[in-house]
Computed example of a mutant assay.
Amino acid sequence: MGIIGWIIIGGLAGWVASKIMNTDAQQGIILNIVVGIVGGLLGGWILSLLGMDMAGAGLIASFLTALLGAVLLLFVVKAVTQRA
């Protein structure tokens, strides 16, 4: 998957994660893309720790991995910013 694919999957995953975590009003399209791409890296790392290799698993698996990581990322950010 090329950079355009990463941007599209990241944007969709970041947007869905922001809807799940109820942070959509605070985020724009650029932040959704960044959250989705970072979430994909985070989700891939967490799944690799659990022994799951998601490389080459397909479009849906990539989206679900990015979604998992994006939700976790937003959860942590939301928890840290509410305490400050």
Results as ranks from 00 to 15, higher is better:
M1E: 13
M1A: 11
I3Q: 11
I3F: 15
I4S: 04
I4Y: 11
I4M: 14
G5D: 14
W6P: 02
W6L: 13
I7Q: 09
I7C: 13
I7V: 15
I7M: 15
I7R: 06
I9D: 01
I9L: 15
G10M: 07
G10H: 02
G11Y: 06
G11S: 03
G11M: 09
L12E: 01
A13H: 04
A13R: 01
G14V: 06
G14N: 02
W15E: 05
W15G: 10
V16T: 07
V16D: 00
V16A: 14
S18P: 09
K19A: 10
K19G: 03
K19S: 11
I20V: 14
I20K: 09
I20D: 00
I20E: 04
M21N: 08
N22I: 10
N22R: 15
N22K: 15
D24K: 11
Q26P: 00
Q26K: 14
Q27R: 15
G28P: 07
G28V: 07
I30C: 03
L31W: 06
N32K: 07
N32D: 01
I33V: 12
V35L: 15
G36L: 06
G36C: 05
I37L: 13
I37R: 04
V38Q: 06
G40I: 01
G40T: 00
G40M: 06
G40K: 00
G40D: 00
L42G: 10
G43D: 05
G43S: 04
G43E: 02
G44E: 00
W45G: 15
I46Y: 00
L47S: 09
L47E: 01
L47Q: 03
S48M: 08
S48Q: 03
L49T: 07
L50D: 03
L50E: 00
L50Q: 12
L50C: 08
G51E: 11
D53I: 12
M54E: 03
A55F: 03
G56C: 10
A57E: 05
A57N: 05
G58N: 04
G58T: 09
G58M: 09
G58C: 08
G58P: 06
L59G: 13
I60M: 13
S62Q: 12
S62H: 08
S62A: 11
F63G: 12
F63H: 03
L64V: 02
L64Y: 09
T65F: 10
A66P: 00
A66Q: 06
A66R: 11
L67N: 00
L68T: 13
G69V: 06
G69I: 04
V71Q: 09
V71W: 03
V71E: 03
L72H: 04
L73K: 04
L74C: 07
F75I: 04
V76N: 08
V76G: 05
V77H: 01
K78Y: 08
A79R: 05
A79V: 03
A79M: 12
V80Y: 10
V80R: 02
V80P: 07
T81P: 01
T81S: 05
R83W: 15
R83F: 14
A84E: 12
A84N: 05
A84K: 14
